[in-house]
């Protein structure tokens, strides 16, 4: 079980709602895939018309599955990036490169109880959690907050699962988050995955209710993180300057011109791509650097962060 990249083939693709596409991916050569854990993600290399995208998607297949990986991809409105490519161009039989599964959102094995709060497509990591908890017999509850017309979209993966509640924005259907958080016993762990505003709200309420920080876990997603105004970056070691477009990240621009940069999550969480910033002012959008490190202005995570001033100089 040693390797870095996988060549996958699209075995099935179908729309489960107007904005959601479900993909089933198998090894292109018919071999077995590496098993993966609950909460794992798969990074796909998507060769779009304008450029290459590397997007990470939560695996919703059962943990340990070796025959196929499954993901659900939401079409990001006005996207010209990876999600548009998957929705408009990818078809059954196409071949994709991918990294081996990574995991930045694994369930905590010592938890007495797992409380999951999902916003819309943020349910995807929890679909693999449910299969894991069913095997281990863990105590859990899943609360899905979504639009009323989306309430049945995920039924195929929730069938037969107890302790799943669906909430939407109408009287009698809203989730009372403060009451839910206040009622949890010692040993509970809270996981939240949804739009940034919902994540922030849940995290604030949990802190206010006295939840220990090590019992609260959040997976950030949303491609809105990486785009912004175009800027320029000078890579001091390589001696090249690169233009970063509106809809690409600094990391993608660095990769586009062939400079090697290490990375893992591509979402500002893991810190693997952290790079010394020699000059310029960064617009930090990561979840990794401490407040003091941001203040000092000597480091940047190029996977999500951008320039506040016109030009950055990186030690790369």
């Amino acid at each position: 079980m040693i390797g870095e990249t996988l060549t996958l083939k699209v075995a099935a693709a179908c729309a489960i709602s107007p904005s959601l596409r479900h993909l089933r991916l198998v090894a292109a050569d018919g071999s077995k895939l590496p098993p993966a854990a609950a909460g794992a993600h798969l990074q796909l290399v998507l060769n779009g018309a304008a450029r290459t995208h590397r997007n990470a998607y939560s695996l919703i297949s059962r943990p340990g599955a070796r025959d196929a990986y499954e993901i659900i991809v939401r079409r990001v409105p006005a996207s010209r990036g990876g999600s548009a490519f998957i929705h408009e161009q990818l078809k059954v039989g196409d071949v994709l490169e991918a990294g081996w599964p990574g995991n930045l959102f694994a369930p905590v094995r010592t938890a007495r109880r797992h409380l999951m709060i999902a916003g819309g497509i943020g349910i995807t990591p929890f679909l693999s959690y449910l299969a894991d908890f069913a095997f281990g017999g863990a105590d859990y509850a899943l609360h899905l907050c979504c639009r009323e017309d989306e309430q049945h979209v995920f039924d195929p993966w929730l069938a037969g699962k107890s302790s799943v509640s669906v909430h939407w924005d109408a009287d009698g259907h809203r989730l009372d988050i403060p009451a839910l958080l206040a009622a949890q016993p010692v040993g509970s762990h809270l996981y939240v995955c949804g739009p940034a505003a919902m994540n922030d709200e849940v995290l604030e309420l949990a802190a206010a209710a006295g939840w220990p920080a090590s019992h609260v876990h959040c997976e950030h997603f949303g491609s809105a993180l990486s785009g912004g105004e175009a800027f320029r970056a000078f890579l001091a070691k390589s001696g090249v300057e690169v233009s970063v477009g509106e809809d690409e990240s600094l990391l993608e621009a660095i990769e586009r011109i062939g400079v090697k940069a290490s990375c893992l999550c591509r979402g500002g969480a893991c810190g693997v791509c952290v790079t010394p910033l020699l000059d310029g002012e960064a617009d930090h959008r990561d979840h990794y650097l401490s407040a003091a490190e941001r203040e000092a202005g000597r480091l940047i995570l190029p996977c999500v962060s951008r320039a506040r001033s016109g030009r950055l100089v990186l030690d790369l």
């Binding site: 206040a182 009622a183 016993p185 010692v186 209710a209 006295g210 939840w211 220990p212």
Partner: peptide
């Protein structure tokens, strides 16, 4: 009596 996650 169960203890709560917010207890100290």
């Amino acid at each position: 009596r169960g203890y709560g996650i917010g207890d100290r």
